[in-house]
Design a protein around this nucleic acid. Structure first.
Lengths: 136, 136
DNA sequence: GTGTTTGCAAAGTGTTTGCAATTTA
DNA sequence: TAAATTGCAAACACTTTGCAAACAC
């Protein structure tokens, strides 16, 4: 079990003022299992927990958390932005029928022979998305 | 060099009526090197070539071409849809500073030990995106 | 002729922004 | 109290849709 102040520590470490809204969102995000969320899903969850926070503030917080390394953005769907509380090196299953993501631990899958990028470029990240659907 | 009628053959094979707009777009897309495009970029290119076509029709055509296997959609950026005329199995470099894509031939890079998907699911596709940026 | 396709403009969706009011330190 | 943050509503970018006019077969 993580300590009650985990969310607060995360905000402090990121240099973000622990406002009521940011602290409440950080608790939802970081005081449990790792998770995948969208702005809408986190906003809905906040409302369900009687946390008054606007959608704009959720967007702001997600970007601030991402910029400071607390979250990682995952691009799997052209119409929505996903965020992952697990910022370590790993990849994903993407379930196309319901839009859900599932982690694939880093050691279980490797990308071999990643080619050199063109001159003057460096690799920022290698993302693997395994798109799955219901078997016929 | 590909024959002049390549675009027409592609449309026929896909069972799409070769209208003036579809034929013109297919020529831009399929009578040259493989390429990566967005709806806006293809629309702009059509206008530059004095092809009168609306943006809505470009969107329609891109989806029809994708549904019939002439194009492949690539998800690398949450705010835009990209399409690739190369429908064979391969992966991509994505240049974050300008939004461009570059193919990585399939044989040059492999994903090892792709895990079994959860029960009842089958793998639809494995996408690898190597995100690169300008070296410091 | 008959069904398909197009273009337009309006609507839709997810996201961002400007700014006054509020909150934090 | 000074600076940062919030909430709202408007603005945005990209994409989709409804429908009458134009087109393909």
């Amino acid at each position: 079990m993580r300590p009650y102040s985990h969310a607060l520590e995360k905000l402090r470490a990121a240099g973000l003022r622990p406002t009521r809204q940011r602290l409440a969102l950080a608790k939802l995000l970081f005081e449990g299992e790792d998770r995948h969320i969208t702005a809408e899903s986190l906003h809905g969850e906040a409302l369900d927990n009687n946390i008054r926070v606007s959608l704009a503030t959720v967007y702001n917080a997600l970007h601030q958390f991402t910029d400071s390394g607390l979250l990682r953005e995952i691009v799997v769907d052209a119409s929505r932005s996903y965020f992952d509380t697990n910022t370590s090196d790993h990849h994903h299953f993407f379930f196309e029928h319901n839009g859900e993501l599932m982690d694939i631990p880093g050691e279980n899958m490797l990308v071999c022979d990643v080619p050199e990028p063109p001159a003057g470029m460096t690799i920022n990240r290698v993302d693997v998305v395994v798109r799955v659907r219901q078997a016929a």
